[in-house]
Simulated scan of single mutants.
Amino acid sequence: MQSSFPKTIYAIQHLAFEDLGSLEETFYQLGFRVRYFEAGVEDLTKALEYEGLTIILGGPIGVYETDDYPYLQKEIDLLKVRLEKNLPTVGICLGAQLIAHALGARVYAGHQKEIGWSPLEIRYATDNLLLPLKDTHVLHWHGDTFDLPEQATLLASSSVYSNQAFQVGEHILALQFHIEVAEETLEKWLIGHTCELRHAQISIQQLREDNHRYAQNLAETTAQIMQTFMKKFI
C-alpha cells in the first residue's frame, strides 16, 4: 500500500548557505522533493503547520534574541504548537536549540565556542538512532547550548557539551551538531562565517583539511541515519 505521507520536505533556513547539504540527495533518493522557507523573509506558518517532515536548520543568531529578531518569537510560538501535535520535526544546531526552547528547556550562551570536527559520545538509549555515528567525526559549530527538555531522551554528548542530541518520541529529533554538512559546499561556510572564525581564533585551514578528511564518511553515515528515521513515515 502506498504511503500517504507528504512527499515534500520543508526546510527552514536562517542563513542562505546553511542548507540541507548532503541530506538533499538522501531525500531525493527516497522519492521526496525539497522546499525551502527563508526565516525572517517568508511567513513560516505553512512550514510549521505542515503535516509532513519539517527540518529547522542552523544560523548564527540566538534563540533568546527575539528583541532584535522579532520573527523568532512567531517561529517559536508556531513550533510549540507543532511539537504539541507531535508532527515530524528535525532541528539542526539553531533548529535544535529552538526545539529545546519550545519544549521548555533553557537555551543560553555556552562557556566556549565549539567549532570543528570531532567524534561524539553516543549515549545509551533504546534504539538510539545515532548509533552509526560511533567513532565518526561530525562538524560542531555553535556557541550556545541548552538544557535537556524533561520529556527528551539524550542521544549524544561531546567533550565540550553534554547535550548534543535528543529525541522526543518517534517524530522529533534535535541535533546540536551539523550532520548535514557536504564536503563540496563547506567553503561557503568558511567565507560566510569568517568574522566568527577569526574572532574565535579557529584555524580555517584546519577546518578545510578536516572537511576533506571526514565529510564524505559523515555524509554516508548521515544517509543511513535519515533513511532509518524516515522508515516510520514511508
Rank of each mutant, 00 (worst) to 15 (best):
Q151F: 06
M226T: 02
H101T: 08
R123W: 02
K85D: 02
E24H: 01
L79S: 06
E114L: 06
Y28K: 15
Y50W: 10
Y161P: 00
K134M: 05
E209M: 12
T222R: 06
L197G: 01
V41H: 11
V34N: 00
T45N: 07
D147P: 04
G143Y: 11
W117L: 10
V138S: 00
A223I: 04
Y64T: 08
R198I: 08
K46C: 09
L23W: 06
D19K: 13
Q201F: 02
S3I: 06
F177K: 02
I202L: 04
Y50S: 01
R208D: 12
I225D: 02
V63A: 02
Y124W: 01
E65Q: 15
K46G: 05
I76S: 02
L154T: 04
E75Y: 08
L87Q: 11
A219W: 02
V138R: 01
A100C: 13
N217S: 09
F229P: 01
A16L: 13
L155F: 12
A223E: 10
A47H: 04
T54F: 03
H111Y: 12
S3D: 06
N163Y: 04
I12S: 09
Q151L: 10
G52L: 13
E187T: 08
N163A: 01
F32I: 08
G91E: 05
I202V: 15
Q97N: 08
L30Q: 03
Q227T: 14
K74F: 02
E121K: 14
S158L: 12
K7Y: 05
G21C: 01
E196G: 00
L83G: 07
A125G: 03
Q167F: 06
I61W: 09
L207K: 10
I76A: 02
A223G: 01
A156I: 01
I204P: 00
L218D: 07
A219C: 04
I92N: 03
I61D: 08
T126A: 14
Q151A: 14
R208Y: 13
E114Q: 09
V90C: 05
L78K: 10
M230K: 12
